[in-house]
Design a protein around this nucleic acid. Structure first.
Length: 341
DNA sequence: TCTGGGGTCCTAGGACCC
DNA sequence: TCTGGGGTCCTAGGACCC
């Protein structure tokens, strides 16, 4: 038997979960995001396929979505419900004789031995649907990168196999942004060097890209172009590196005393959550987004890792004092980093 | 398009040390 | 005395992903 990587990705996950408890919305454009009020600051978490036909996309400001699709149903984000639905899906995956690597609420890699990965994928789709009433698409690959990219060609509710054999046939002429890990900024830099397609990236000189894009990332991008990447799904639980909280205010804060109070409150929230995890903070960072949209971060290493709320609050306020006060503030964030072992 | 909130990893420069 | 080279840590920012 051969080892295969499957990438399981729930279709329009958040919208699908909302539709399960509001079946009367089936067939209507549904947009989930922020507080559910599309006139407020916030972005689209997930748009149903019907809403996507109006050009509504994940990450789009809710106010833009409202202009494009005024008749959509707008719903607030309900994190606990999605976490529960996600846990249900992951539990189904773990019942198969495979290793499961969770990548987020709505996706996971599955690795296992089989001579018929399409049949395994179909079994998983049936089991997930029967147990959770959610549809998923599955990418099949000879490594994680190819499985992940394959999923897009299987959507919705389908399967697609992408391997060494068909990599360039399928991907060769597509733009580099199709690759997992290359966004608009990197694509622009590559285009400056005459690299636009996956095939062109695969043929690029790693050393030349190292000089331009960094010693690690340059050669890594060439590997991406060739469809190469990790081949084995890891089942070891993920150990978080940091934990933080941030908030965008509906109205910019102009009173610095209030900015201090908000940072103190965020620090205490983070401290309470660290206590639950039992993992002390080794560093504390503060993020400030000034109006209109300029973001700065400052951070400090603590004398010793701590869980003490007062110590974390004081550290966050000291870091905040490194900023020049007086400017209107749109967003504040506090993040704790754990000790790296 | 007026742009959330949760994260991860990489890069580069400066401090500091031997 | 105008000035090496390597290593590590700290910090801020950038890019990306879900």
């Amino acid at each position: 038997m051969a080892y295969w990587v499957l990438h399981v990705d729930l279709d329009q996950f958040i919208a699908a979960v909302e539709l399960l408890r509001r079946p009367e919305l089936a067939g209507r454009p549904v947009v989930v995001g922020g507080s559910g009020d599309p006139t407020q600051r916030g972005v689209v978490a997930t748009a149903s396929y019907e809403a996507r036909e109006y050009g509504v996309r994940s990450g789009m400001p809710l106010r833009t979505a409202l202009k494009r699709c005024p008749d959509a149903v707008y719903l607030p984000v309900d994190k606990p419900t999605y976490e529960e639905a996600s846990a249900g899906v992951m539990a189904v995956l773990r019942e198969f004789p495979v290793i499961v690597e969770v990548m987020g609420w709505d996706e996971a890699f599955v690795g296992g031995e089989t001579d018929d990965p399409e049949a395994l994928a179909a079994e998983i789709q049936v089991a997930v649907l029967e147990r959770t009433r959610l549809h998923c698409s599955i990418g099949i690959g000879d490594n994680l990168l190819r499985a992940k990219i394959a999923t897009e060609f299987g959507k919705p509710r389908g399967r697609f196999r992408l391997t060494k054999e068909n990599w360039f046939d399928v991907m060769g002429e597509r733009p580099v942004t199709t690759l997992w890990g290359i966004g608009a900024k990197t694509a622009r830099k590559l285009e400056d060097r005459g690299i636009r397609t996956v095939r062109e990236l695969a043929a690029a000189d790693p050393a030349a890209l190292a000089a331009e894009l960094g010693p690690t990332m340059g050669p890594y991008y060439v590997q991406l172009g060739r469809g190469l990447g990790r081949r084995v799904v890891e089942g070891t639980p993920w150990v978080p590196r940091s934990h933080g909280r941030e908030v965008t205010f509906q109205e910019n804060l102009t009173d610095w005393a209030q900015v201090r109070r908000e940072v103190a409150a965020l620090a205490r929230t983070v401290a309470a959550e660290l206590q639950e995890e039992g993992r002390p903070a080794a560093r504390v960072g503060v993020k400030v987004r000034f109006a209109p949209f300029v973001t700065h971060t400052r951070s400090t290493t603590l004398a010793a890792p701590t869980l003490d709320p007062d110590a974390l609050e004081n550290a966050a306020l000291q870091v905040l004092d490194l900023f020049r006060p007086g400017r209107a503030v749109r967003l504040l964030g506090v993040r704790a980093e754990f000790e790296r072992s």
